[in-house]
Design a protein around this nucleic acid. Structure first.
Lengths: 100, 100
DNA sequence: AATGTATATCGATTTTTCCCGATATCCCAA
DNA sequence: TTGGGATATCGGGAAAAATCGATATACATT
């Protein structure tokens, strides 16, 4: 749990937006063909479409959120699905409350 | 409570360090002449000495933490004292837990 | 009023982040 | 085994942040 890395990951409008979308995937994304939102999350392409950023940027941003521990990913076939790691958010909340 | 602004303010090693010091002033700072730690906090000069950054940088950083709502300041004579706004940290913790 | 001390602001330079296009990799289907 | 689609990585240009020195402001003392 690297505080600084986490806060840096959260210091970007688009990345915050992605996290918000991933909180309620069924609300923000069309149904997916190959996987279930709640099991594995949302694939990169769908996230990219909503972002309006390029594929490479979105992929990089998802990587940043991953490295910070805020997302987890699952590869299924040609798709990589990302979902929130809710435990990390709880841990972050606790960290802010007690040690920050 | 501007999420993005808060996370940006927290995205810097020195600023995180300052917040940690201000959490327990009596532990990290020598006694002050003109004011009490718990009432008003610590003056800029003392913070600067521990930081090893220039006066202008520290002043700016304190300003950034202020604007984000994480610190409050009190001017007494020629000194400006800064202390943590603990309510902001609680609010941030809640935000991370519930809405982030 | 003049001086000294504490802090804030300004302008400039270096470093980091943002974000892109191009390309590489990985996987599936024909 | 070749072609296409999905994602990751690479290299770079533009924008923002970090950090400094110099200067301005604000206050206290003489």
């Amino acid at each position: 749990m690297d505080q600084l890395e986490i806060f840096k990951a959260l210091s970007n409008k688009s990345r915050l937006q992605i996290l918000a979308w991933l909180k309620e995937p069924e609300k923000y994304f069309p149904p997916q063909e190959h996987a279930d939102f709640h099991e594995v999350g949302v694939c990169v392409g769908q996230i990219q479409q909503k972002c309006g950023l390029t594929q490479s940027t979105v992929s990089e941003y998802l990587g940043i959120l991953m490295k910070a521990g805020l997302l987890q990913s699952t590869r299924i076939g040609q798709w990589t699905y990302y979902k929130r790691n809710e435990k990390a958010f709880e841990a972050l909340s606790d960290l802010v409350k007690s040690t920050l």
